[in-house]
Design a protein around this nucleic acid. Structure first.
Lengths: 232, 232
DNA sequence: TCAAAAGTGTTACAATTACACCCATGA
DNA sequence: TCATGGGTGTAATTGTAACACTTTTGA
């Protein structure tokens, strides 16, 4: 079973749940492992943390290797240290989650690592069986963003710079897993005064084009301090 | 400087912010270190995590060693891995926080470890200078419970089994750092219907004795599911 | 002209805030 | 009898929830 083991540079790793949002659905970026253990299985992008880098830096590196992007929003999630989570012994993993604007990607992500055969976006509601305790990590990440989206404007990290109110609403609906009332949603969201109405509209749709908005960074900063509450 | 180093059983440790509540003020349990590095400094209780125990178990062990108690509420907080946080090289620490009923303690905690000379409760608003990045860890723990106390009934972990509404209110005030309106607080808290009014009153006070309440465990469980919101 | 989604207001109800006095107790 | 904290209600405001139709556009 265990040919070609990753050399144990350290006894802890980091794994990252990379969320994307496309066509009304939340996606997670998974890799197909090219190394034992769990060779051929789907897993979260992750790797051993080097002695000379911080955990944050390791995650940034992993994000770059899989998406080609820097400056992605990321945050630590939880540290998993069950004795049996890794077949090669007790390896602790510091899990992160990241939020990615899918439209920033020029193309399908091509991992530049040799431990991943391919990297593919999977819809959250249809995930394959995953290596290690990665399914559990993803569940924890969803819980986290479900809560966080109601008091902090992380939603905008998943949307293109210019977006419609419907896109924003669909994102909340996808994260919370239930429908919201259109009128109430718009009323409340616009009341926060953190959106800037643009003199632009959607293009290329075969129905009435929706107005585009973008985040007003100045007001956004204030809201981040005072914390906005968007629940129910 | 570095005589008598702790042997590096592993490259990661756990540290625990133990909160207590007494006479209207939040306290943190600190130890005076008896080992290098930072010998003689105040620090959070913590130690290296053994290869054969989970992180949770390590924290439980540390809690027991310092308080003599088991079954204390605890939860993972954050994992700190800065390259320079530990003078002996990059040692990652998985920080936890714990909430303790101070009245459960028979006496002053006496650490049964040899790396701590003494363990003393310090009021949160008057902490000494701390070893490592422990001040930073405590700040993060406070942020965490500030948020968490508004959607989950963790407050009761800090109070005796039977408590007065004023004690409960003072706890919220201590954690949030601001005064609350007595009538509004009581109205809201009693409306949740998670408290059981006891036919008992305070004793030994030189003013009108306040009624005692305790948590109604059955309703508590429901509230934990639906998540209560107590903000502002 | 049709299909599809955009956009828009009102009313009922619930929650939150602000606010001040009398009561019971032990010293 | 005094000092101390316990205990209580109402009104104004704000926020939330439920609900349906007209408009615009491209095909």
């Amino acid at each position: 079973m265990q040919a070609n083991l990753p050399h144990l540079q350290s006894t802890f790793t980091t794994d990252c749940v990379i969320f994307g949002f496309h066509e009304g659905a939340l996606k997670v970026l998974l890799i197909e492992r090219n190394e034992y253990p769990f060779k051929g299985w789907w897993a979260l992008p992750g790797f051993f943390v080097d002695h000379s880098e911080t955990i944050d830096d390791a995650v940034k590196r992993i994000l770059y290797e899989h998406t080609g992007l820097r400056g992605i929003f990321m945050e630590q999630l939880y540290t998993f240290g069950d004795l049996k989570r890794h077949p090669q012994g007790r390896i602790i993993t510091v899990a992160y989650y990241a939020l990615l604007r899918l439209d920033d990607l020029k193309s399908q992500p091509e991992p530049v690592t040799d431990y991943a055969r391919q990297a593919v976006w999977h819809p959250l509601d249809d995930l394959p069986e995953l290596a290690f305790d990665h399914r559990h990590i993803i569940d924890k990440a969803i819980q986290k963003i479900r809560r966080k989206i109601s008091y902090s404007p992380i939603a905008f990290e998943l949307l293109p710079e210019k977006f419609t109110l419907t896109q924003l609403q669909q994102l909340y609906e996808a994260i919370w897993g239930r429908k919201l009332d259109k009128r109430n949603f718009r009323k409340k969201m616009l009341n926060y005064n953190i959106l800037k109405e643009l003199p632009e509209f959607q293009r290329g749709v075969s129905y009435r084009a929706a107005r585009l908005y973008k985040l007003d960074k100045r007001k956004y900063a204030k809201v981040f301090q005072n914390e906005l509450t968007f629940s129910r």
